[in-house]
Structures are given as C-alpha cells and as structure tokens.
Design a protein around this nucleic acid. Structure first.
Length: 421
DNA sequence: ACCTAGCTTGCTTGAGAACC
DNA sequence: GGTTCTCAAGCAAGCTAGGT
C-alpha cells in the first residue's frame, strides 16, 4: 500500500498551486467573489447540504450562505441588488488564459451565474473547459477564512495567507505546522511569479522578497489571526530559501479560551446610555447618538443571536438577516427598547443572560396564598439565585406598586412558560 | 586586492480600488 | 462619475560582500 499522507500532502500542494495559477490572473474583486464561492461550498458541506451542490455541470449554492460569506470581513454591512448583480458580472468575467509550446488560449470559468430569489439559490454554470476537480477538492482541505481574506488589499498577502492556513489546518489551536522552509523557485510557483511577466522578480531574489514577500507578511501581521515572520537563507551571496514562521496570535488563543465561558458584560465595556422617561426623548437620543451602531442582541421575540442596529437612515435593522424591520415590527421593537433601556449597547451578552433578561417586564397572574386570590404581577428584576444557580432570584411588582422578592423558587422554565397576559 | 553577481534603493508609471 | 490613493511592477544607478 502506498504511503498515504505524503501523497495527499503532495496533491494538496499541487492543487493549491494550480489554484494559484488561476487566481493570480484575477483582479482582487474576482478573487474575492471566487473565494466566496469556495467558502460557500465549505459552509454548505459543514451544514450537510453538499449533495445538492453539483448537478449537470452546474454548481448550486444556497443564497443565504452565499450572501453571508460575501459579507464576511467586507467593509460593507449590507448587500443590495446592484451589488449582487455586480458580483454575478464579476463571476462571469473570470477568465483563465494559458500558454504552452503549441498554443495560447483563454477560457471562461463560469459561463453563467445567476441568483434566483424565488428559490433562494445561486446557480453557477461552469465553462466547458474548466475542470471542476480543480475547484472542488479545495473545499475539502483549505480552511478558508474569509473574515481575514477580505481585508487584504495585497494579492500576495492573500495567497501567502491561504497557504499558511492550509498548513495550519482546520483548528488554529492545534496547528498542523507553523513554520516551513521553501526554496525560492517553489515560492515563485506558489505565488504565480513567472519569467514572462515578472522578469525582475525571477532575476532578483532580493527584489522578490522586498517587493512581494515582505509586504505580504506585513499585511498578514496587520490584518489576520497569524503573526508571521521570515528568515532568508543564503547560499553564497544568493538567497536560496526562505524560512517562514506563522504561529497564531497569542491574544487570539486566549480569546478562544474565554469564548468557551459565558461572557458577562463588565461595566467598563458598556457605553453610557442615560435613562429616559419620555419616549420621544429616548428615540431622539438614539437617533442622535446611535446611528449606524448596534443597539441590542436577542431582544424579546427574536433568537438570542439576533442583533438589532440602527441604520444610517434611522430605521431599525435586523443585522442577522440583513433587513430593516417592517413598520409593525419596528413599532413593537421601539416600545420594547423603551421599556428595556438598560439593554442598549449590551452586545456581548451570553445566551443565558439574554434569556433571563428577556423575562423582564413579563406580566402574568400569580396566586397569592395570604389573600387567597389571583394577582397580576410584572417581573422587575430577575437573576440567577446566588444560593442555587438552578433557581432564580425574582423581583415582582403588582398593580398597587407592592414589591415582592422571591428567591430560590422560580426556575427559568417556570417563568418562561407561564402565560403572559 | 580587485571584480562582479547579487542586493539595495529611488524614481516612475499604469491599473484598478477606494473614496467622495 | 470623477478624483485620489494604493499596489504592482519596470528601470537603473549605486553599493556590498563573497568569490577569485
């Protein structure tokens, strides 16, 4: 039996270089949209939609996933129709030209690209000559990180970063490797440098390093999760190899550890929001100071990861599905925001925190044993009981303004399931 | 000690991205 | 839609250190 890993490793590199040859001919925008396609494929694989991807030379992507990937790390926060149209145009503009001893030529990669808003799918028809296996195996191994990729302005930075990520593998906490020594010839191939187009870089290794490698490393350090550096290795007076080091940034690793635990907002992190008793003043204040900012996460009636922001036009905006709230929903949301002013600006709440906070201001009937009668109460305060985190500490207020504190009795489910009146 | 391949630096230009 | 900015790349003169 043939040794498995070295062979795969070789394919991996060969495929990568093939891919680079293609990418190198693209403009930055084309690279971005092409990577979006790859990232969408990966994401669909991750969520188990892979079987539907390819049919008869056509790639079918989920539009929501595609749009989500497009937005990752991009400066824009919202994608409108004209941008989607531009993306489709960019896609069919991607060409690959080649040159052999016998001939020169060019072909398109995508012959047709369209988004159907009825079935929410992106249909990409491959050009006749494009071999999809050049594209699709990549989805298996290259852990694309569009968040960082889209912030690159340098094409060499993009390419080198993707190569590092390929070597690191899926889990940045358990990198497969974080250094490698490459000879200059291989680097030329890796970055798509060739004799015809880049005579200077082929003939002058130092120029190649100072104009290609160094700026790329600089940008990787500036924008990504890696801290990269190089060590040129000389043979005689000529630089023959470059040693690369690319461990993950420390703060990223420690941040990852923190992420495992629920995040509790600290006072320092919260922005100051004065409290208002008049709705109009409240609304005016938000419109004056919070335009374009995130307002709340997981408000009542929404999933706990949904972030509501205030758009530049002053509309309430659901960042998760990227739509403005309908007038009816917006009305409800404004009311809710007014009643829950302390939630504004608290974006780093954990799911647990949100669930508890969303119980606040809930009205329900409670049976008063002393008076032996049903009474209407509103939840004013709710937090985990200090004695026993399974239970809650709850502060209730009735119509007469009487406050009652109940500790160690209610559970989250009890309060959640009780019928609102 | 001298020569020169390879390194370094500065200036320039065009393309295309970003900005207003 | 026009202007400004940035990136990639060319050209060339001067320098340096490894080779002879």
């Amino acid at each position: 039996m043939a040794p498995r890993y070295p062979v795969e490793d070789l394919y991996k590199h060969n495929d990568y270089i093939k891919m680079v040859q293609i990418k190198k001919q693209m403009s930055l925008q084309q690279q971005r949209i092409f990577d979006t396609v790859l990232a969408s494929i990966q994401e669909m694989k991750k969520v188990g939609l892979i079987d539907e991807i390819i049919s008869e030379g056509e790639l079918v992507l989920d539009f929501h996933i595609f749009r989500e990937q497009m937005l990752k790390g991009a400066s824009i926060k919202k994608i409108n129709r004209s941008e989607l149209k531009k993306a489709m145009e960019t896609m069919v503009d991607i060409k690959f030209s080649y040159q052999t001893d016998d001939e020169v030529g060019a072909f398109v990669i995508f012959q047709k690209a369209r988004i159907n808003f009825e079935d929410n799918k992106v249909y990409l028809t491959f050009g006749k000559d494009f071999r999809t296996e050049n594209l699709l195996p990549t989805a298996n191994y290259t852990a694309l990180s569009l968040t960082y990729l889209n912030s690159f302005s340098s094409q060499y930075g993009r390419l080198l970063y993707q190569y590092f990520k390929m070597l690191i593998g899926k889990d940045i906490n358990k990198p497969f490797r974080t250094d490698i020594t490459l000879d200059i010839d291989f680097l030329h191939k890796l970055l798509g440098i060739n004799q015809n187009e880049h005579t200077n870089y082929i003939n002058n290794n130092s120029l190649f390093i100072s104009r290609v490698i160094n700026p790329a490393i600089l940008q990787i350090n500036e924008t990504t999760d890696l801290v990269a550096r190089i060590e040129p290795i000389k043979r005689g007076r000529k630089i023959s190899h470059i040693q690369f080091f690319f461990p993950p940034k420390d703060e990223l690793l420690s941040k990852q550890k923190e992420d495992d635990q629920p995040v509790h907002p600290s006072k320092e992190n919260l922005l100051f929001v004065p409290s208002f008793s008049i709705f109009k003043e409240f609304r005016d204040w938000l419109l004056k100071y919070m335009i374009g900012k995130q307002l709340v996460i997981g408000p009542q009636g929404y999933l706990s990861h949904v972030v509501i922001s205030l758009s530049s036009k002053g509309y309430l905006h659901n960042d998760t599905n990227d739509t403005d709230l309908s007038p009816d929903d917006a009305m409800l949301m404004w009311t809710w925001l007014f009643e829950n002013q302390e939630r504004i600006g608290q974006i780093n709440l954990s799911e647990d925190d949100i669930k508890l906070l969303n119980l606040k201001n809930k009205r329900f009937m409670i049976h008063d044993h002393e008076k032996d009668m049903e009474e209407k109460v509103i939840i004013k305060e709710v937090k985990k009981s200090e004695a026993n985190p399974q239970y809650l500490f709850v502060e209730l207020i009735n119509d007469n303004g009487e406050i009652r504190q109940i500790d160690n009795f209610f559970t989250y489910n009890m309060l959640h399931n009780v019928k609102e009146i």
